[in-house]
Amino acid sequence: MNLTLKVWRQKNPSEKGGFKTYKLSGISADMSFLEMLDVLNEDLSEKGEDPVHFDHDCREGICGMCSLYINGQPHGPHQTTTCQLHMRSFKDGDIITIEPWRASAFPIVKDLVVDRSSFDRIIQSGGFVSVNTGGVPDANEIPIPKVIADESFDSATCIGCGACVAACKNASAMLFVSAKISQLALLPQGKVEKRERAEKMVAQMDAEGFGACTNTGACSAECPKEIKLSNIARMNREYFSASLSTENI
């Protein structure tokens, strides 16, 4: 099929970017979206033009490194990662607009590559259980009801891609933050420090400059791992009860 791509090009964070249009022909429906971009980049390289930079790694939908805002939706028209999006989702003659994630907490590095280290800093602020290696109890010491373990797992499947932030009209990171808070608050191992965790992670999220939640549900609707909105409610609950009950004045 033949396609027209409108791609955001930006040499570096300080320079002004803009859209550039490329025509592509001979794209197979079996290609993944990123393989289509590979074709574009091979073409560009052969012509001596700088290839389009985009983040990607595992290409099997789990590492969370790929991004791209495709025709107005993060990861394109389906609820999946860009690497798992295939060209059969497009038609011959389509115009495809490709933009980077837009958020002040995700500054652009180059072209479609953004810096998502704010997510790392949020996890560093409290997204863990404070146990050192060794000296832990036997794995079967504390039984965990299957439903709780499963619910915790559902929250834990977040891949940290940032589609929630990209989809949210407020560039809010609440789905990401709440998924981690939920995963750990549900498990007995994580309950011990759940109040401090909620306080610290929310504070870090705010410090990074993410927006507030207006409950539009766009994050969850676009999340490739289908993280539920109920996580955000649980985070709110955890945060308010932490704020009322911890002794941090």
């Binding site: 863990f128 259980v129 146990v131 290696t133 060794g134 832990v136 109890p137 036997d138 794995a139 079967n140 039984p143 965990i144 009801p145 299957k146 373990a149 499963d150 915790s152 797992f153 834990a156 995963q183 750990l184 498990l187 191992q189 994580g190």
Partner: peptide, 22 residues
């Protein structure tokens, strides 16, 4: 055997049986 203990303590949500054990 220590690895499993360590991961569970970190909050890794392994699959469990209805009785709550791994």
């Amino acid at each position: 055997v220590n690895i499993i203990d360590q991961c569970v303590a970190q909050g890794v949500p392994f699959a469990r049986e209805y009785g709550g054990l791994l």
